[in-house]
Simulated assay, not measured.
Amino acid sequence: MDDSSSRCPPVGARHRVTIPVPIDPSGSRGPTKRQAASDDWRRTSRGFYVPSHVEPSPLQRIAEVAVLLRSDRIAVTGWASLAWRGDPWASGRRADGSLTPVDLTSTHALLKPQPAFRLSQERADPREFEVVDGLRVTTAPAAVCFAVRHATSLDAAVEVLDMAYLADLVTPEEVGEWAQAHPWQRRRPRVAAALELADENAWSPQEVHLRLAWLRATGRRPLTNRPVFDSSGRRVATPDLLDPMTGVAGEYDGDVHLTRAGRRRDLGREQALRAVGLEPFTVVAGDLRDGRFEERLRVAEGRAARVASADRHWTVEPPDWWVPTTTVAERRALAPHGRRIWLRRG
């Protein structure tokens, strides 16, 4: 193997992770054998340890695998590459909360299996390897397509793609171009299907699954986080989802909405939306599984149908002064001060 570690910058300097160390008989650069066996240290892989107080966060788990990658023929890919690049939703957890290994890809290098990582058998292209904060990772399009192709379901694949869009890591064009350039990849049709269903402006995984359920229930695809304006051009609110055909707005309420301040904001937004002729309804955790979502959607559609045309004073067409941010390209084009102004979500 080609040991290129000396040519790479230190791993994780910007990410503030703790790099595992091997046993050191002197105890100066690592734990002694006795110390490593105590509760003060946690073994991360064969021969490597970190202090036991170090939490195995997604970035920390990636760093713990990084010390094993001494060949420039191996790179981190999938969810771990996305997380390392700044996708906060790439957690490395399955829907049931269990951990998934760090995905690795290689040109033809071998690495002895360990529980912390999973080495793909697919041949990688070294031209798609990049070093980010000292760690060799695949490009963002390659990592997204890997994660999408290996997702447990199409809905999970759409969530991966939507959250990569949210982090502005890839555009639909970049993902499509990568898939077209790699027609031999396994499960490539999954990428095409996810691209068809994905949205560049979803703000949370829960919104993704609410949107997909809405599409299945009605055959109509609601708009995501589209600002609503009144007849004078004033922004009324930005609902999670909006069906412009029926005038129904859907909101997913997570735990952050349970506080007194959060509930006060929600009630004010519902009142503002109804004042311009929209009919909002709320979904909470569990509603998508037990069928309550569809019932609430039908009730909201029934109420919206009874709103007179003269009482509808809303539009999704922005005034001239509004700066759109519904696509990755639009968000990337913003200057830093513009991002602070226009990407305040809520």
Rank of each mutant, 00 (worst) to 15 (best):
D287N: 14
E270N: 15
Y165N: 06
E270T: 10
R94G: 03
I74T: 00
K112E: 13
A261T: 12
P88Y: 09
S45Q: 09
D96K: 10
P227W: 07
P244F: 05
S232R: 14
S309V: 15
D240W: 02
L111V: 11
L288Y: 02
T100F: 11
T218E: 03
P22C: 08
L210D: 06
V191L: 04
A151W: 07
S231Q: 10
S81H: 02
V248Q: 06
L288W: 03
E330L: 15
R265L: 12
E279A: 05
F229H: 06
L297F: 05
H53T: 11
G277M: 06
D253I: 05
W203A: 14
L59M: 11
R211V: 00
A192W: 12
S57Y: 08
G219E: 11
V228R: 01
T326N: 14
R186M: 08
A142D: 15
N225D: 08
Y252D: 07
D243W: 01
E177C: 13
R29D: 15
L119G: 03
C145A: 10
D320L: 14
F146M: 09
V248H: 00
L110Y: 14
A192R: 13
T224W: 06
Q35P: 04
F293I: 05
V248K: 07
R42K: 14
Q114P: 03
N225W: 01
G12R: 07
R14C: 13
L212T: 07
E270H: 15
A213L: 05
V102P: 04
E64T: 06
D39H: 12
L297I: 06
R344L: 15
G27H: 10
R340K: 14
Q121A: 10
P101N: 09
G286R: 00
G250E: 04
V256N: 14
D199T: 07
Y49V: 03
Y252V: 00
R136H: 01
Q271Y: 07
S106Y: 00
E295C: 03
I74Q: 05
R43Y: 03
W203F: 06
P222D: 04
P324T: 11
G247N: 02
W214D: 00
I62A: 08
G262E: 09
D2N: 15
P172R: 05
T327H: 02
A157N: 00
R43S: 11
H337Q: 13
P318M: 12
T152G: 13
S153C: 06
H53W: 12
R127V: 08
Q114E: 15
T138N: 02
W89C: 08
S98V: 01
S6I: 11
D255P: 03
W203M: 09
V76T: 06
A83E: 04
S309P: 02
R296A: 15
V76R: 02
Y252Q: 04
A75F: 09
V175I: 13
A63M: 11
T259K: 12
W41C: 00
A66L: 07
H108I: 10
S232E: 13
A116E: 11
V175P: 04
M163F: 10
L161Y: 03
M163E: 08
F48T: 01
L59I: 08
H209I: 09
D2C: 04
